[in-house]
Design a protein around this nucleic acid. Structure first.
Lengths: 345, 345
DNA sequence: GCCGTGAACTGAACCGGTTCAGGAGGTGAG
DNA sequence: CTCACCTCCTGAACCGGTTCAGTTCACGGC
């Protein structure tokens, strides 16, 4: 190209080349009325030839302009996050949806809730994002108040209780938990324990309540909930304690798959056969469940799909549409080799 | 506060309150000469009282302004990424370094190299990032040319061969591989196979060459490299094929821990005892290696530390400093229960 | 008393878009 | 013929910073 610009072309360059004003170029490029079809065509051609791409900061700076980015903060210790497939899958899902529309994802990993709140404040104040995805709802979660006050368009993954009226994508964990417990009961188990996440997470409470209710329903003799922290080590510790018990459970239901894998390891280490003497169910079926031996029965959720779905909801919210609470696709119990009837003694 | 603004305060608001010009406020807030200490102090106080925070897009738009964000593209299929701890750990490490300096991380997951290149182009053209981290160097990698041409400040994770002169953070995989092979040889193994990643990755070649060389060095009778794709399923397939062989290997060295976990599962499924009949070594020691039974001997690398280090390098590069190729801390062989001498027949 | 100097500060341009008020010119109705 | 009205387009303001070229003023030297 002769006379190629060293710097990137701007709409002024297009305007000059087309012999029109900046404003006309802007209308043409944004598909708005105000220019004739002939002129629009000409401007678009020139823009394409020049390789014009809108400047992000300039767009964002204009009154009412959007940044073209959304944010997500994951508030879990870095050490724990590494092996936890859930967030990576969620991010993958969000990305597949966003990448099509040229919206970027800002990811932040924080060590505590205060740092997370600070991230939202900064993002809102500095105008780094158009909206955020909030995950891991807690009991008495102040983040819902914060994003509302800032204000920062928000979609919550979780809820609807605790989402405080914000648009949310929720899963019926209770129903899935009922399915799991009744399945275990049908296999003959009467003493089951749920190895749950920390009590301060909202969904922990939901699942624990469902577990207790389903256990009564299904006629289990004993059904307790032990709280761990989603880490492999935490899951292993909790499992060791439970299995060392005189009247040890014959079935364990884990709140994520990392703890389930750890539990499987502890059973092996203690010489307890799975599923002969102990059945294990994992939550959030990732590829891990299929890789270990015995393979893990798991509640399979379409995490990538939920990521894509929540990204769509946030995109629409940012665009000014009304977005309502939506139920995610129901989790499925996928039976594998880690569950079964108790072996004859 | 009386007369509180509904909109966020700008430097004009501060200027009005302080009775000075915009320019003076800018100088004061950025710690540049041009205002007296008294005035600077007054301006800073007012800014603090008003809760002023710089507007990101406005800063970025000003000539020579920085966006305050860096990007990373991970080019692996979403399905595979979920359970692969490496990237999550890397992101965690990058984040810990960036969060202190108010720089954001843009993460993108793409399905192929073309999409990755498109992401760099878009980020550069739209001015979304100040620089990028490039990972997973390939043979004949065009990305180095691309980022240089755009231009986009870049730090490469990997190299130094193939980094094409770009600043890079590299690990001496060869040395670690030698350590692994000599350890296996000392345990009495004479027939080992490396289950490697895809051939088009640069580090695959480096490790494979080191594996072959170390095998000669250590006097192994047979030492081949089988190429898989880093996925659990791929690792399982490769392992199944290898172990079905008449003259099957007695030691397997995997290029990541996910494939090693899969290999362990296949051994169990085929009734081959580990480490009695088969020793297994994993690369990239994540918590997974400690959770499975037997626990996996692994080459442990400080992935989080490398993430932090590369973030530091990129930050300095963006700031205009010269940054040189740097060697990451050496990987350590951490022996666990998956390696040992062959059991007496 | 005059001039040179440097510190402190101002005013305006600039970055690259969006948007609004208004003007030119053509057309159709009365 | 006149006027209203619509289409197409222009010019300028605006978003919120940074930076540069000047201006003002106090002070010191001779």
């Amino acid at each position: 190209m002769v006379g190629a610009l060293m710097r990137r072309p701007t709409i002024v360059d297009i305007a000059k080349a087309a012999g029109v004003s900046k404003g006309a170029v802007s209308y043409a490029l944004n598909g708005r009325p105000g220019v004739s079809d002939r002129t629009r065509e000409r401007i678009l051609t020139i823009a394409r030839d020049l390789g014009w791409v809108p400047n992000g900061p300039a767009r964002a700076l204009a009154p009412g302009g959007l940044v073209g980015a959304v944010g997500m903060v994951v508030d879990r210790p870095a050490s724990e996050l590494g092996a936890e497939p859930f967030f990576t899958r969620l991010v993958s899902g969000i990305e597949t949806e966003l990448s099509g529309s040229g919206v970027d994802l800002l990811l932040q990993v924080t060590a505590d809730v205060e740092a997370e709140a600070a991230a939202y404040r900064r993002w809102a104040a500095e105008r780094r994002v158009d909206g955020v995805v909030v995950v891991d709802l807690r009991e008495n979660d102040h983040r819902t108040d914060l994003v509302r006050e800032l204000p920062l368009p928000t979609v919550v993954l979780g809820g609807p209780e605790g989402a405080d009226g914000l648009p949310c994508l929720w899963a019926d964990d209770g129903a899935a938990m009922h399915e799991v417990v009744h399945y275990l009961a049908a296999l003959g188990h009467r003493n089951a324990v749920q190895v749950a996440g920390p009590e301060y997470f909202r969904h922990t409470g939901v699942r624990a309540a469902a577990f207790a209710e389903a256990a009564r329903d299904a006629g289990l003799k004993s059904a307790a909930t032990a709280h761990a922290d989603y880490t492999g080590d935490g899951g292993a510790r909790a499992t060791r304690r439970l299995l060392a018990h005189r009247d040890r459970p014959t079935a364990l239901v884990y709140d994520n798959d990392l703890m389930a894998v750890a539990g499987l390891g502890v059973a092996a280490e203690m010489g307890i056969s799975v599923p002969g003497e102990l059945s294990i169910v994992a939550w959030d079926d990732s590829v891990l469940c299929r890789l270990v031996r015995p393979s893990l029965t798991a509640v399979s959720r379409d995490v990538e799909g939920s990521g894509a779905q929540i990204a769509r909801m946030l995109t629409r919210l940012v665009a000014g549409e009304r977005v309502h609470a939506t139920e995610a696709t129901r989790g499925d119990l996928v039976p594998r080799d880690s569950t079964g009837p108790l072996a004859e003694d």
